[in-house]
Design a protein around this nucleic acid. Structure first.
Length: 317
RNA sequence: GCCGAGGUAGCUCAGUUGGCAGAGCAGAGGCCUGAAAAGCCUCGUGUCCGCAGUUCGAUUCUGCGCCUCGGCA
């Protein structure tokens, strides 16, 4: 069997929708292993805030792509793609069932449709670009991009510095336009056959669950987790420390926010994040939406997933 | 009970010298190819507390009522 054509079951959904518990039950039923698709759970030591599954759950079902880097190590989609593919091959080779679970849309898109062959991030170069923007005035980088790669400049808003810098970075490192890379790649190659399930709930239901989950995170020691990370010398400026919960509690610990503000902002920002996840997956043409509004029991959630025709074929193996 | 202040968008409030009302926040929609839990864009009609009066016209003025918040009892 061609390993690269092994079908994949992907369970996605916004934060706090109920992916984790249900997918662990499913993995147990199928004798499978879970490949996480979560940009925060890759960080070692960030457990409570990133809502990792428990140690018991991870003992019961083998997990991949969790705790793969320290919070101060750079990590990005490219790293994720390589590691996730490797993990999937390994799972298939060991005759287990691969189950991808997570809410990071970009990671899932990379896994299902690949990534263009661009250069990895170059932090120093990025810093130089940012300095230039600062010294030559706002709009300078976008104007530069308009000259070098007009097609890309049209698509990237002039305030979206992060993407402007990336486009310039690609041009400088490869001497080729980002827009050319994109045209070539076009997100069309699908290395795996897959079924992508997006679990969803009514906004009011999801938002209530988000608040409850954050209350639970706080009760189980989120503040201490953040204090420990800061105590180990991890800067609040790190990408990992910009994650939901981490940046809020770092702000509180450092005195920029009151405890109540930190909590309220964390809840607000998590809801906003969930909204962006909806937007992302709405545009994902292959996503099969399964509404589990009002259902909180993991076994019941699993039943809903399993009875969907697109998922059934996996279960009947 | 008396005195004062106020009742305008989900919340906090601004405003209309009388001509069908507008900010912040919350919220909603969208973008996204190596920072993606990040970053970026767009979006404001609501019995202007109720009833009556004055007026061509009232959310705005007048009267009465209801409610809220202070202070005094």
């Amino acid at each position: 069997m061609n390993i690269s054509r092994k079908p994949l079951l992907i369970i996605a959904g916004p934060t706090a929708v109920g992916k984790t518990d249900a997918s662990i039950l499913l993995a147990q039923e199928l004798n499978g292993e879970i490949v996480s698709a979560d940009s925060m759970q890759v960080y070692h030591g960030m457990d409570i805030g990133s809502a990792k599954s428990t140690l018991e759950q991870r003992t019961a079902v083998r997990h991949h792509l969790i705790d793969v880097v320290e919070p101060d190590q750079p990590y990005s989609v490219g790293d994720y793609l390589r590691q996730a593919r490797q993990a999937l091959d390994e799972i298939v080779r060991s005759k287990k069932f691969p189950l991808v679970v997570g809410g990071t849309g970009l990671y899932i898109r990379a896994l299902t449709r690949g990534l263009f062959q661009g250069p990895p991030a170059d932090p120093q170069l990025r810093e130089e670009f940012m300095q230039e923007e600062a010294s030559k005035g706002p709009g300078f980088l976008h104007a530069t991009l308009r000259n070098l790669d007009p097609e890309a400049a049209v698509k990237i808003h002039e305030h979206d510095l992060r993407r402007i810098v990336r486009a310039l970075e690609v041009y400088h490192l490869k001497n080729r336009k980002l827009s050319e890379f994109h045209e070539e790649h076009a997100l069309q190659n699908k290395p795996y056959e897959f079924t992508l399930v997006f679990l969803c709930r009514a906004r009011s239901d999801l938002y209530a669950r988000i608040e409850e989950r954050i209350d639970r995170m706080i009760a189980s020691g989120l503040e201490n987790e953040v204090r420990t990370l800061l105590g180990r010398g991890f800067s609040p400026d790190l990408v990992s420390m910009q994650g939901l919960g981490y940046r809020h509690f770092a702000g509180y610990i450092q005195g920029a926010l009151s405890r109540n503000e930190a909590e309220a902002l964390l809840k607000r920002d998590t809801k906003r994040f969930a909204k962006r996840q909806f937007t992302w997956f709405r545009r994902e043409p292959d996503a099969i939406w399964i509404d589990i509004t009002g259902i909180s029991d993991a076994r019941e959630i699993l039943q809903h997933i399993k009875k969907h025709p697109a998922v059934k074929k996996y279960i009947e193996i």
